[in-house]
Structures are given as structure tokens and as C-alpha cells.
């Protein structure tokens, strides 16, 4: 979501926008309201920066809270929107950390196995030019197929690196740099599926990832090789990106 200054609208203008939005549910009005409160989103997201999560992710979560607050706010009540929105956005951020806490506390053995699996998959893919089957990973690691499946599943629960996270295989370059910047192809995909802008709410890098996988038709292993990250990492990023896009489509439908 591009950041714009929020001092462009007065309190009266914001209240007027809310009254119009509550009557019409016009997406354009909602966008104006969102843009008018992006500073609030960033400010609240920054309060949680010392908890080990990338700011971009926190801003995304806080933005979801803002969208909920806009939809639920009743302008007839004698309360300022920010008074109403702050607890909603903070609640969304807290819920995010609570949900993550329930998934990332894996037993050390599982974490180690997940890490070893990642290495085994990368090694096999480099040697054979394709991703391995579970049986092939099990054989190379001398563990059971059930242990491989358990490890892969636990890897799903491990924190998904942000696209801003540095890729160890690529020195100081962030994944953001590797995947690329603005890409016109994303717009094409959005237009092709007539998604009416749902795609544009994703970051350009997430859109590029979708483009590489679903338009260019590259396999996860091929994308991993191109980006210098692991296949398992690509798998997790794709899953998260698809979830985000689904969420955008659902939100768009709810706000229509």
C-alpha cells in the first residue's frame, strides 16, 4: 500500500467521507479513508518492531486492522475515528503475534530436521535438476518418509521470511531486489483474470512471484534457482501470497 501524507484531509472531511462511505460502500471512498490513515498504520506497526518481525509485514497486518475499523466505524456516534481505530489495529497486531506464537514454538528436534531437510532438498535439486520425491529425501537423509513429511509440515509453521529479508545465497541483496521491482506483467495478470485491482494490493514482488509461477509456468525449483532461495522457501512464499490474494478478493467482495 503506497504511503501518503494524512494531513491532506481535515477531521470534517474525513467525517464526511465516512458518512458517504457508510451509505454507498464505494471502494474509491474507502481508498481515500485508507490513505488518510496510513500514518496511523505505520505508527502503530512501529510500536511492535522490536518483536522480530519485518516492518513491512507489521504494516500489512495493521492495514488489515484499519480496513476492519473503516468497515465497522459508525460515524453517527460521537467518537473520532482514530479513537475507534487504534484498539482495532492494535488488536489485529496482537492477534498476529499470538497466532504466530502458537505456530513457531517448535521442538528443537523438529526445527533441526526442518533445516536439514531444506539443505537436503537444495542439494538434491542442484545435483539432479529437479526436486526430489519424499522417498528420495528420506533415503538421502537416512530417515523414514514419515519423518520427512513431519519435517516438511513443521517447516510450514516456521516463520516465512519477508521478501525484504536478505538471502544468504545472495550476499547483501534482499529478496526484494532479486525478485524485481515494479513489473507491468502483474497488471496484465490482473486484467486477464479481471480481478479489478485485487492483484495491485499485493506487493510488486509477491505479484512477480505469482507471475513466475502461474504465467511463466516455472516450477518452484526453477523459481528457487532463479531467486537463489530454497524450493521450500518458494513453496511457503507462494502459499502466503495466494492466501493474501484470496483475502484481498474476499475483502473486495465484502466492501462492495
Amino acid at each position: 500500500m503506497p504511503r501518503k501524507p494524512n494531513n491532506a484531509l481535515s477531521k470534517e472531511e474525513i467525517l464526511s467521507l465516512f458518512r458517504t462511505y457508510q451509505g454507498t460502500k464505494e471502494p474509491e471512498i474507502k481508498n481515500l479513508l485508507v490513505n488518510a490513515h496510513l500514518d496511523l498504520v505505520h505508527s502503530l506497526a512501529r510500536r511492535f518492531i522490536n518483536r522480530g518481525e519485518p516492518l513491512d509485514d507489521l504494516v500489512q497486518v495493521a492495514s488489515m486492522g484499519l480496513l476492519k475499523a473503516i468497515d465497522r466505524f459508525d460515524s453517527d456516534r460521537n467518537v473520532q475515528f482514530t479513537t475507534y481505530a487504534v484498539p482495532t489495529i492494535v488488536g489485529e497486531l496482537k492477534r498476529y503475534f499470538r497466532d504466530r506464537a502458537s505456530t513457531i514454538r517448535l521442538p528443537r528436534g523438529l526445527r533441526e530436521r526442518s533445516h536439514a531437510l531444506n539443505i537436503a532438498v537444495q542439494k538434491f535439486s542442484q545435483e539432479h535438476g529437479r526436486s526430489p520425491s519424499i522417498a528420495e529425501i528420506a533415503e538421502s537423509m537416512d530417515i523414514s518418509e514419515e519423518d520427512v513429511i513431519e519435517g516438511l509440515e513443521s517447516a510450514e509453521s516456521v516463520s516465512v521470511a519477508s521478501l525484504d529479508t536478505s538471502s544468504s545465497e545472495n550476499g547483501d541483496l534482499s529478496l526484494l531486489d532479486i525478485v524485481g521491482g515494479e513489473d507491468k506483467t502483474l497488471k496484465l495478470l490482473d486484467e486477464r483474470l479481471s480481478l479489478a485491482g485485487a492483484m495491485s494490493e499485493l506487493g510488486p514482488r509477491e505479484q512477480n512471484l505469482l507471475y513466475l509461477r502461474f504465467v511463466e509456468g516455472l516450477s518452484q525449483t526453477e523459481i528457487a534457482k532463479q531467486l537463489g532461495i530454497s524450493q521450500m522457501h518458494v513453496s511457503r512464499l507462494l502459499r502466503r501470497t495466494l492466501q493474501a490474494l484470496r483475502q484481498n478478493l474476499t475483502t473486495a467482495r465484502e466492501t462492495r
Binding site: 532438498v121 529437479r130 526436486s131 526430489p132 520425491s133 519424499i134 522417498a135 528420495e136 529425501i137 518418509e145 520427512v148 513429511i149 516438511l152 509440515e153 510450514e156 516450477s219 518452484q220 525449483t221 524450493q231 521450500m232 513453496s235 507462494l238 502459499r239 495466494l242
Partner: peptide, 29 residues
């Protein structure tokens, strides 16, 4: 999650590689 685990087990038994198994899981998801 149960669908994903079951798919992983079946994919393993029939010898799909991780790319193919993940495709199937993406479809079912």
C-alpha cells in the same frame, strides 16, 4: 492441514516429487 498431510503421504507413496506434490496441495487448498 489434514488434507495437506494426507496429500503429502499419498504423493510420497506414488513417487511424486516435491514440485508435483506441492502443485497438488495448492490445488486442493
Amino acid at each position: 492441514k489434514i488434507v495437506r498431510l494426507t496429500t503429502a503421504v499419498v504423493a510420497s507413496r506414488v513417487g511424486l516429487n516435491l514440485d508435483q506434490a506441492d502443485d497438488l496441495n495448492t490445488a486442493l487448498d
